[in-house]
Design a binder for these strands. Structure first.
Lengths: 251, 251
DNA sequence: TTTGCGCCTTCCATCTTCCGGAAGCCCTTC
DNA sequence: GAAGGGCTTCCGGAAGATGGAAGGCGCAAA
């Protein structure tokens, strides 16, 4: 394959895997990574030897323990998720709702963590997954404090997801201004029918908004704002935690 | 470097990172992965381009978002952690203690998840980290149901960690038998002074013990067994969940 | 039993690509 | 202004990657 270095070829094999393709056989890997079968075979072998991939009894491959292990060393995980987790859990325990922690990844909200007891609302998000910025509360919060040019770009590509999704750029811009003023973002059935959400921003060591924490609640509930004080408290506790660490070392 | 394929060299760069070396500069990476600086430089460049690594403002490198993302596709994460998480959270909320989910990784207990509110006991474990099998409750539970030969091997290498660590193979073997009988594992200050722990096994789709769930509690607490019913309930709920899925697809 | 098929594995002659010492750059420190 | 640490670039020689082809294996249909 022209222009791809050896390493890139090996990495493109890993790229063949995603949420909807967690298990692939060799032929599928070769096809999805655009490599001849023999070449894919050789690379896959090496990746398996290194435990980047695992081979299952049925012959399919999946991401291995070693990569999971490595991924836990990423800044996103260690510096954000681990710092936030205790507060998120308390928030979850206090409110009983599904709790989200997300960061902005281009025009998407990337879900870093999702907590929710056995009885919480079922939601579409999953850790490592993404959802649109404009239709979720965490997304709106992240967008409200995003750089102006990125905000403008996001406003020009509003996709309708439910009858209640805000797809008018002017209206969303007004909402974002309101979010900056009140420091709370809301949605109501804009992503999923039956679900409402609230979110507030988390500020990092530098004082800018680096993440958002949100609650998802059934939209029929009347006291939608009841979790807000706890949410604000959690977000500012996480912000304080991030501020106090700056550049800490290992665990 | 003799005998290492290109891919393996690139992977050995990733291997330079671990819990105590989350951020490395180029020189350190080259040294730790045993590669000439120029070679390391080339590989690191490619890994950064692919977002396997990230370069920070101060010039150091760390594991990037892409690997974190990929790791979340591993079976360990999707099939075990995600299935167990809601139950673990409930368990954490009910007991107020630190909750652990671990699997056996050779002679170590590999911590897949750790939950604990802001007020829980500080513990030495971390997700993705390992602790000895013989000095932790989850470890003992995993060891109790391990294959006989591995169990024997583990018994021959008991390291003392506190004055209370059980290092006599005969005594530990008796404890393991007791654990299989009662289906509960205990420790008391065997890993960390001041901490006790309880754990029970989780059975997978095939009916064998694949993981263990445990609680860590301050050892001065008198009602050490008070969390046991909730712990048992959580473990059997997770086991049931795993049994009912067998080979489910995506989220 | 034979044939066909899908999938995996191995082989090896060819040639693309990687290797890494050396030299140069850019800071900071003395 | 010289020394030193760390990073980046270069390029000829050497090494290792490539991938078409052929063979193996298990299964199902004829």
């Amino acid at each position: 394959m022209a222009g791809r270095s050896v390493t890139l070829r090996a990495l493109s094999i890993l790229d063949a895997f995603d949420v909807r393709h967690r298990r692939l056989n060799l032929t599928e890997i070769a096809r999805r990574s655009n490599l001849p079968l023999a070449t894919a075979h050789r690379h896959v072998q090496e990746l398996v030897d290194w435990h980047a991939l695992e081979r299952r009894a049925d012959g399919t491959y999946q991401i291995g323990t070693r990569l999971w292990h490595l991924g836990l060393l990423s800044a996103m995980h260690v510096e954000l998720r681990e710092a936030a987790l205790p507060y998120l859990q308390d928030l979850c325990a206090v409110t009983g709702d599904t709790v989200h922690l997300a960061v902005r990844d281009g025009f998407k909200a990337l879900y870093v963590e999702r907590l929710g007891g056995v009885r919480s609302v079922r939601v579409v998000s999953r850790p490592g997954g993404t959802l649109p910025l404009h239709a979720t509360a965490v997304g709106k919060a992240l967008l409200a404090w995003a750089p102006a040019d990125e905000q403008r770009a996001a406003l020009s590509r509003l996709e309708r997801l439910t009858p209640y999704t805000v797809v008018d750029p002017t209206r969303l811009a007004a909402q974002l201004a309101e979010i900056r003023r009140t420091e709370v973002a809301w949605t109501r059935e804009e992503m999923t029918l039956g679900a409402a959400s609230v979110a507030v921003g988390v500020t990092g060591a530098a004082g800018s908004v680096v993440a958002a924490v949100g609650l998802v609640i059934p939209s029929h509930r009347t006291n939608v704002g009841s979790g807000l004080p706890a949410l604000r408290a959690a977000a500012s506790a996480i912000s304080a935690h991030l501020r106090s660490r700056r550049s800490a070392g290992a665990a």
